[in-house]
């Protein structure tokens, strides 16, 4: 009741499909040798950045879902608040963005570490519908409140 009014809902299958595409890219990051893996990681970082700013529907994965997947599916049973998946994009951006930054300053090991962490999160989202970043949100709120106190 004290929650703010919810904005227009989105099809919850969209973010999960997008996470599956992201997971495939992250597997590529882990599978490819050095220069190529950094390039693919940069693509993932850019996708997360778009998703964090515009929401999941505004990403290329969201476009692929609407254009090719959604027309083949029945109407969604329920709609989902767009804010949780958008928050998840922000978490993904921080993890992969840090990995990319470290790789660019010469820490090559940061690429597989960041890609592996993001792959776990994307895989859990796609297969189980679990938003890892959202589960950790409350821990973040508690830490921030403790730091402010």
């Amino acid at each position: 009741m004290s929650l703010p009014p919810t904005p227009a809902g989105i099809d919850p299958r969209g973010p999960r499909f997008g996470a599956a595409l992201t997971a495939v890219l992250l597997v590529l990051v882990l599978a490819l040798p050095a220069p190529a893996s950094v390039v693919v990681l940069a693509v993932v970082v850019a996708s997360f950045a778009v998703g964090a700013v515009r929401g999941v529907g505004g990403t290329w994965q969201g476009w692929v879902y609407r254009r090719f997947v959604r027309p083949r599916l029945a109407a969604p049973i329920e709609l989902e608040d767009p804010r949780p998946p958008r928050f998840a994009q922000l978490v993904g951006l921080v993890i992969t963005g840090l990995g990319l930054l470290l790789a660019l300053v010469g820490v090559a090991a940061a690429v597989p570490v960041a890609a592996a962490l993001a792959l776990v999160a994307a895989f859990l989202n796609a297969v189980f519908g679990l938003c890892l970043g959202c589960e950790m949100y409350l821990l973040g709120v508690r830490l921030r409140a403790r730091a402010a106190a």
Binding site: L30, A116, L119, V120, F123, L124, V127, F128, L130
Partner: peptide
Amino acid sequence: VFILVVLAVATAAGLWWR
């Protein structure tokens, strides 16, 4: 092998969470 280990860990975590 690394990719398969990562996916196995994620699967185990997902099943536990569910």
